[in-house]
Amino acid sequence: SGWMVESTFKKWFEHFCTYAKPSKAAPALLIMDNHESHLSIDFIDMASKNGVILLTIPPHTSHKLQPLDVSVYGPFKRHFNREIDSWLVSHPGKTVSIYDLAEISGQAWSKASTPANILSGFSSSGINPFRPDK
């Protein structure tokens, strides 16, 4: 259907557990929205059994509460626009093609997705597993 459904989400969560390897001794924090595919009792039980702490955020608040939305995606958009502007200045009269986008977006992504930006997103959003006192 192109939409997330409970069965697909369950498969994704199994994949997540396989590779993140959460446990009761070393839990993982999973931040997600309140989409109906995330709210089944089976999923909540699976998360609890696998040592996954679930944190859901209210609808229409991801721009303020999701760490990557706060500290990475916004800067990425700004850097991407600067990289496009720079490309256009250095290639007068040309239009950006699909073949140019990988390099342009890669340059923007490397500037936006720094460890410092990622960590600051947790503090800015009020979700800071690395510093619970914040």
Rank of each mutant, 00 (worst) to 15 (best):
V72D: 03
D100G: 01
D45Y: 08
T56C: 07
H63K: 11
L101R: 13
W87I: 08
T114W: 06
H91W: 07
S97V: 03
E103W: 03
P75K: 04
G93P: 01
S37I: 08
F80P: 00
D100A: 05
S105T: 14
L55A: 09
G74N: 04
I41H: 12
P59M: 08
V70T: 11
L54V: 15
P92E: 13
I41T: 14
A47V: 06
H60R: 13
T114V: 03
A108K: 09
S71M: 04
P75Q: 07
G93K: 10
K111F: 01
F76Q: 04
S37F: 11
T114A: 08
W109E: 04
H63D: 06
K49Q: 11
P59L: 03
S113Q: 03
K49C: 01
N50I: 06
H60P: 00
T95C: 04
S48K: 14
S105N: 03
V72K: 02
D69P: 00
P67D: 11
Y73E: 03
L88W: 01
S86N: 14
A102F: 07
S40Q: 06
D42Y: 07
S97Y: 01
D42G: 02
F76N: 01
L88E: 15
N50C: 12
Y73P: 00
V52W: 06
N50Y: 05
Y73A: 04
P92Q: 07
S110R: 15
P59I: 10
I53M: 12
F80K: 09
A102K: 15
V70C: 06
G74Q: 09
P59D: 13
L101W: 05
I53L: 15
W87Q: 10
P67A: 09
E36K: 13
D85M: 04
H91G: 04
K111L: 15
K77V: 02
L55K: 14
A102T: 10
S62N: 06
P115K: 10
T56V: 06
L39S: 13
A112G: 05
E36A: 07
S71K: 07
L119D: 01
S90A: 13
S105E: 14
S37K: 04
L55P: 00
R78N: 12
E83Q: 13
I118H: 02
N81C: 09
S86L: 13
Y99L: 12
P67S: 11
P58N: 05
I53P: 00
W109L: 10
A116R: 12
M46G: 00
A116F: 01
A108H: 09
A108L: 12
E83A: 15
P75D: 05
S97M: 11
A116Y: 03
S71N: 12
V96S: 03
I41N: 09
L54D: 08
N117P: 00
S113Y: 11
L119P: 00
I44M: 09
S62W: 04
A47D: 08
S90Q: 13
T95F: 03
W87K: 07
